[in-house]
């Protein structure tokens, strides 16, 4: 058990942070929702009712989709695009999908390589892109859920104001959907860009996200 906690400390720590933050969001979101209910002259709802509301679902989903979009783009764009000096980038002359040998695929696979790296057929193609396939699917699924939950929440507000509900297609071109979407995307793109650029000149001793402290600024693709 101690060995498990040590060997998985990073994923456990982020899992605990996630659950704590989500619980905090649920509680604060419930308080905020009820404050609005009172302001609108409506009754307060229980926490259970809030957690099964479209308002809670859309708030969670809109943040989830943007995180997976961020990593999907980061994974894909770093295959072809480089940044001189950044540990997040490959060396400048390695842009692209790289050779079978470099990637240890097919007959270049090692004895302890994953089974699907060795076959050299469609399984290798699938496994070669499995990270972007899963992250991309999670992005699309959570963005779809955001659109449905956001649509339901939007129509509930309209009904309370004696306005006709709109269709899902209309919601997809509505400012509410795009304001929720883009306010999340802009911060993700800024954060990734910041990481790529700042890691050229700044260091964190001991972090694999940084170059070694004494590594020259001009060296690319070196992780500490």
């Amino acid at each position: 058990m101690r060995r498990f906690l040590h060997e998985s400390a990073l994923s456990i720590a982020f899992g605990v942070l996630f659950v704590g933050a989500l619980a905090g969001q649920a509680f604060a979101g419930w308080q905020q929702f009820n404050a609005q209910q009172v302001a609108d002259g409506l009754g307060e709802v229980t926490l259970g009712r809030y957690l099964t509301s479209a308002d809670f679902a859309v708030d969670v989903a809109e943040n989830w989709q943007s995180e997976w979009l961020q990593f999907s783009l980061f994974i894909l764009m770093t295959v072809w695009l480089v940044q001189k000096g950044s540990p997040e980038s490959k060396e400048l002359d390695r842009a692209g999908a790289e050779s079978m040998k470099d990637q240890k695929i097919g007959r270049y696979a090692r004895r302890d390589s994953p089974a699907w790296a060795k076959t050299g057929d469609w399984r290798t193609t699938v496994f070669s892109n499995s990270l972007i396939l899963v992250m991309g699917t999670l992005f699309l699924a959570s963005w779809l859920i955001q659109s449905i939950a956001g649509w339901a929440a939007f129509n509930q507000d309209r009904l309370q104001q004696q306005q006709d509900p709109i269709g899902w297609g209309s919601y997809l071109v509505n400012a509410d959907f795009w304001a929720r979407t883009l306010q999340n995307w802009q911060s993700e793109f800024l954060a990734v860009g910041t990481m790529v650029v700042f890691s050229v000149y700044l260091r964190q001793r001991g972090s694999p996200e940084s170059k070694p402290v004494g590594e020259p600024h001009t060296n690319t693709g070196v992780e500490g």
Partner: peptide
């Protein structure tokens, strides 16, 4: 090795459960 598999499945199944929950909640309110 078993620990790595456990964390992989915890994340993957946890996310799938979260997405399924939000999907059901969303569709119920449509």
């Amino acid at each position: 090795v078993a620990g790595m598999r456990v964390m992989f499945l915890v994340y993957l199944l946890g996310i799938a459960a979260g997405l399924a929950y939000m999907f059901v909640v969303a569709v119920r309110h449509v």
